[in-house]
Amino acid sequence: MPTDEASAIAIRLDVLLQDRGMTLTELAGRIGITLANLSILKTGKARAIRFSTLEAICRELQCQPGDLLQYERNGL
């Protein structure tokens, strides 16, 4: 059953965007995902991520999935 507890998986999308000088809106346009959905992902409110979304983000940001996702023990 899903819980409301904070996920231990952190999304480092903001860091990657900052490093590449790209805005969230620009990335959303490039990968064909709505800004609202991408914002959900960025703020860590998403419950799951599709492989197709992960692939598109990695393609556009020239990164690996491990650069985007990070496991933080005890949510720290």
Partner: peptide, 11 residues
């Protein structure tokens, strides 16, 4: 409902 919530939270 739980599955729907999961689906809606999938990006």
């Amino acid at each position: 409902a739980a599955m729907r919530a999961d689906l809606e939270g999938t990006v």
